[in-house]
Design a protein around this nucleic acid. Structure first.
Length: 429
RNA sequence: GUCCCCAUCGUCUAGCCUGGUCCAGGACACAGGAUUUUCAUUCCUGUAACACGGGUUCGAAUCCCGUUGGGGACGCCA
């Protein structure tokens, strides 16, 4: 039975790299029908708050990474907070004392290293040998055990079979191996996954980089399926030129040895593209639901659900992100929109927009049915009668009706707006 | 500085383990074109890579060594 864990420490934010580590652990657990454990490493009392924990839990839930054991769900190997496992750590310190590998210096307990090179049989990188040269602290002078120690004790007592974590821990692993062996514990398999590097510039992605935090994607209305799918592609490939796949397929295909050992730069554009694909193929009702949190803070509400549905249906074909929707549909949900100065300049640069709008207003009574098909035909014949192209009318009308020089499918937009509003806005322009 | 990891188009990657089918495939981005009488979407086309140097071999992107470059770790943080 495969048992993997994601062991974040609550810091107040959820880093994209941590999310990817969680995802790979989760994928592997699902792939092997194993157990995915969430363990909270909250020994750094200063940073640990309830809010910090919430950020983590919300982020994981949002990404759909449910855990089999851990906070809120419990499990037979609990507690799942390191802050609640102190008795256990004391017990293991005693065991270590008995091996004679512990000594005190300046109030801290040091662990005496073996002096032998430690062989990490890494599932991603193959065999890696590293010698831990210096004895290291396991219990601080204030009595608190350090990360390396508690991490290993928890992995032993939780029966973790595979440790899947970032490559930044690879050099720590020799310490961990020494500890595992000192306890006579069965070694877990290790899989050190590549790091996510900044899109531009040197180094790994830090919390200050754009797109580094899961919270940002939640707020901006990214679809979790899209982000999750993108993250799968960073350091791993489903092969056969496939990229966008349902999560069930991803789970089936995923395996540790197939993880690419080299670091990957984060590519915002590729994520945006993938998100666009997911957005556009969302069932309309789901799209409407996804849009509402973006619409409402901007005062864009609509009591007519059927109308809203049609409006958003128009928008869905156009956008690659939910965050683009409010601006696009504003003129259809509210009379309170501004004429974009740049669009105005662009439209006024060619032809005589005001005259075209007057032409159209004069023609308006002749349009019997105010729907997309008839409007298109109407514009055609109007243009013909004036010896002009329909495009001469299109942009001025769009500008007057929406304030933009581009946007939603025009005739359908006009039909949705209705004759009255169209007339009013054109007269006012 | 010491130790560890990594190295295919600008970016993510397939191929590497089990050398020949690869003058290296896909995707994003970029450029051009078609469609949409506008923009977006969609479709087509194009530009573009095996870091370098040595081996091994009849043959190397694939195996070995070195160089260079990138990344990470070196805390009484996690």
């Amino acid at each position: 039975m495969v048992r993997v864990r994601f062991a974040p420490s609550p810091t107040g934010f959820f880093h994209i790299g941590s999310a990817r580590t969680a995802l790979f652990n989760w994928l592997y657990a699902k792939h092997t029908s194993g157990c995915f454990i969430l363990r909270i490493e909250d020994t750094d009392e200063a940073r640990n708050t309830q809010e910090s924990l919430e950020v983590l839990i919300k982020g994981l839930r949002w990404l759909g990474l449910d855990w089999d054991e851990g906070p809120e769900v419990g499990g037979p190997y609990g507690p799942y907070f390191q802050s609640q496992r102190e008795a256990l750590y004391e017990e293991f310190i005693e065991r270590l004392k008995q091996t004679g590998r512990l000594y005190e210096q300046e109030g801290a307990l040091y662990f005496k290293v073996s002096g032998k090179p430690q062989l990490i049989d890494d599932l991603v990188r193959g065999p890696v040998e590293r010698l831990e040269e210096k004895d290291f602290v396991v219990v601080r002078s204030n009595g608190k055990p350090v990360f390396h120690f508690v991490n290993v004790v928890d992995d032993i007592t939780m029966n973790i079979t595979h440790v899947i974590r970032g490559e930044d821990h690879l050099s720590n692993t020799s310490k961990h191996l020494e500890l595992f062996k000192a306890f006579g514990a069965t070694l877990p398999r290790f899989a050190h996954i590549p790091l996510i590097l900044k899109s531009t510039g040197p180094g790994k992605m830090s919390k200050r980089d754009e797109g580094a935090l899961i919270e940002e994607y939640t707020q901006r209305g990214f679809l979790p399926e899209a982000l999750r799918n993108y993250l799968c592609l960073l350091g791993w490939s489903p092969g056969q030129d496939r990229e966008k796949l349902p999560i069930e397929t991803l789970i089936q295909l995923f395996d540790l040895p197939d993880i690419n050992p080299n670091n990957a730069h984060f590519d915002h554009k590729k994520l945006a593209h993938l998100n666009g694909e997911y957005v556009r193929e969302l069932p309309l009702d789901a799209f409407v639901k996804a849009c509402k949190p973006a619409l409402e803070p901007q005062g864009l509400v609509c009591s007519d659900a059927a109308y809203l549905r049609e409006v958003l249906g128009l928008a869905q074909e156009k956008v690659r992100a939910i965050e683009e929707v409010p601006h696009l549909v504003r003129p259809l949900l509210s009379d309170d929109f501004i004429i974009n100065p740049e669009s105005r300049e662009l439209v006024f640069k060619k032809g005589d927009p005001k005259a075209r709008i007057q032409d159209f207003l004069a023609y308006l009574p002749q349009i019997q049915t105010f729907d997309a098909t008839h409007l298109e035909a109407a514009l055609q014949s109007l243009a013909q009668s004036k010896n002009l192209e329909p495009s001469h009318f299109l942009q001025p009308l769009r500008l007057a009706l929406t304030g933009m020089h581009m946007g939603l499918s025009f005739y359908r937009l006009m039909a949705l707006l209705g004759q009255q509003k169209v007339q009013k806005r054109l007269e006012k322009f």
